[in-house]
Simulated scan of single mutants.
Amino acid sequence: MISIRSVFFVESGDTVTFEIQSGSHSATAYKEGTSTASVNRIPEGAEPFNSEILSEQGATYEHTFETTGTYDYFCIPHKTLGMVGRIVVGEPGGPAEGSMPPDGDVPESQTIVDQGSVSYSEFTE
């Protein structure tokens, strides 16, 4: 299980389960037309994901990542506060690579690959 507010590395074909620990959050891909996203920051051909807002503690959302590359995502109610994340699937690449999401900062993709995951508190302090 992954906190909604994390950055992490997975292999192609892995299914990720996002879990609400507290509050109301979402895990929503930066794919133009998905919720409030106005830019594409997932690999070309990748399936966008959107948990919608989850509010119940322990609520989960699953997504299987098939396409290799870098995926940036955000929390719908907290995007303007900089609550964004990054997932690297297999290896860095795609439109998110080499730049930061429009609503906040995340670790570089290679850092995520090297460390496996970086908690939200580690990259926002």
Rank of each mutant, 00 (worst) to 15 (best):
T36Q: 15
E32V: 10
E32I: 08
E66H: 15
S24G: 13
I87R: 00
I87F: 04
G58L: 09
T36M: 12
S35H: 09
S22A: 11
F49T: 02
G85S: 00
I2M: 14
H25C: 07
V10W: 11
Y30H: 08
L54F: 13
Y73G: 00
E19G: 08
E56V: 10
H78T: 12
K31F: 14
H25G: 00
E11K: 15
G82C: 03
H78V: 11
V10F: 13
F8G: 14
M83C: 12
S12E: 15
G23E: 06
H25V: 06
S12R: 11
G23A: 08
P77Y: 06
V39K: 13
V10D: 00
V16Y: 07
T28P: 11
D72Q: 01
R41L: 15
T67D: 02
T60K: 14
E62M: 08
N40H: 12
V84N: 03
T64F: 06
P77K: 01
I87N: 01
S3F: 10
P77T: 02
N40L: 04
V88F: 03
S3Q: 11
H25P: 01
F8M: 11
T60Q: 15
T28E: 08
F9D: 12
G90M: 06
L81F: 13
G90E: 09
E66I: 12
T80M: 15
H63C: 07
H25F: 04
Y30R: 05
S12H: 10
G33P: 00
T64C: 04
V39C: 05
L81M: 14
S24R: 12
E56Y: 09
P77E: 02
P43E: 07
N40Y: 12
F8A: 15
F74Y: 04
T17M: 06
V89Y: 00
S35V: 03
E44N: 10
T70F: 02
I42P: 04
D72E: 01
N50M: 05
S3P: 07
A29H: 00
F65Q: 02
S55K: 12
N50E: 08
F8R: 15
S24A: 15
S51N: 07
A27Y: 04
V89G: 00
S51Y: 05
L81I: 10
A29G: 01
P48K: 13
T80R: 13
M83V: 14
F18L: 13
G90C: 04
P43M: 02
I87E: 00
E56H: 07
F9V: 12
E32D: 12
A59R: 05
I20K: 14
A37F: 01
A27S: 07
V7P: 07
N50A: 03
S12F: 06
R5D: 13
I53F: 06
T36I: 15
G23D: 07
G58I: 02
S26P: 03
K79L: 07
Q57H: 10
T34Q: 00
V89N: 02
S38K: 14
I20C: 10
F18T: 09
V88N: 09
E91Y: 06
T17H: 06
T68N: 08
H63K: 03
G58K: 06
Y61Q: 02
E52A: 14
F18I: 05
I87T: 01
T28R: 10
T70W: 03
E62W: 05
P92L: 09
G85M: 02
L54T: 03
V88L: 05
A46G: 05
R5F: 11
N40T: 13
S35K: 10
N50P: 07
F8T: 14
